[in-house]
């Protein structure tokens, strides 16, 4: 390919309109031709400017909250890593989780097949970290604690042993609680799920947090939960509830006992990805 050939293709090159083979030919020529490199610099300027040739649109406010909440959530593990002063607590939920770190469970983790991809390994490690970080979120209800421990245990094990891989949906804080975040671990095959949250303000005695499932124009309640002083809370999804058609998760603060429809602005929300 000579300079004339490349000259014919420069504009298509900067627009990304060449085939892979043609791109390689042009790049090979550019490596050894300073004149064509100068020419492509000029063409590139116009190509850069095309990015500005679009109608100006205003992004929704919710996008800003979403991004900032995700950024702040990144800081959360660092905060959580700071060792807290030991607090002697009674109550059985801590006991329920002691088995999560027991040798038999660690043994199960240790048999991660080497053939798993780096991505899967990273996911497993990440999920384990999240599970450990959210252990503190388990509320005092023993029954819920058992169910949650079971589901979160499956979350840790599932990429290794099961085709029933959990979907993880991130929730971010709305203006009412911009520093809050949450994650919903959900098994589509068995319709089991646990929502864990952090950074929510502790509700007053007459209030409760409520999860909503939004699908199209309809919003359905999916359970209530309380937050501890730490801002952490947890909700086990009602039995058999399906998220297949759900587009968005919302968390509001409602009157104690819950509501049929959300009455207050979102404290937290997240969008489920379609697959």
């Amino acid at each position: 390919m000579n300079c004339d050939d490349v000259g014919e293709l420069l504009d298509l090159f900067v627009l990304g309109a060449l085939s892979r083979h043609e791109v390689e030919d042009v790049e090979t020529h550019l490596e050894s031709c300073p004149n064509c490199r100068t020419e492509i610099g000029r063409a590139w300027q116009a190509g850069q400017l095309l990015r500005l040739a679009v109608p100006t649109l205003e992004p929704p406010d919710s996008l800003r909250y979403r991004i900032l909440a995700a950024a702040r959530a990144d800081l959360e593990p660092a905060r959580a890593a700071v060792p807290a002063a030991p607090v002697q607590q009674r109550g059985s939920w801590r006991d329920w989780f002691s088995w999560l770190s027991a040798p038999r469970f660690a043994g199960a983790i240790a048999i991660v097949p080497l053939v798993l991809s780096l991505w899967l390994t990273t996911q497993v490690l990440s999920m384990r970290g999240e599970v450990q970080a959210t252990q503190q979120a388990l509320v005092k209800t023993t029954q819920n604690g058992v169910v949650a421990a079971s589901i979160l245990g499956k979350v840790v094990e599932s990429p290794i042993t099961s085709a029933n891989v959990p979907a993880v949906t991130q929730l971010v804080g709305a203006p009412g609680a911009p520093d809050s975040w949450g994650k919903l671990y959900y098994f589509p095959n068995s319709n089991e799920g646990v929502l864990v949250v952090a950074g929510l303000p502790k509700q007053s005695d007459d209030k409760v947090y409520q999860l909503w499932l939004q699908s199209g124009g309809r919003v359905n309640p999916a359970g209530t939960f309380y937050c501890e002083e730490t801002g952490r809370g947890m909700l086990v999804l009602p039995d058999g509830i399906s998220l297949q058609t759900v587009e968005m998760l919302r968390v509001t603060k409602e009157q104690r006992g819950g509501s049929d429809q959300p009455h207050e602005p979102n404290y937290m929300w997240g969008r489920l990805r379609s697959t």
Partner: peptide, 19 residues
């Protein structure tokens, strides 16, 4: 500093979103 990210977002989010 997430406040700095917020300011960058304020400056460029329209152009980025529009594109």
């Amino acid at each position: 500093d997430s406040a700095a990210l917020d300011e960058v977002y304020r400056r460029y989010s329209r152009s980025v979103y529009s594109l």
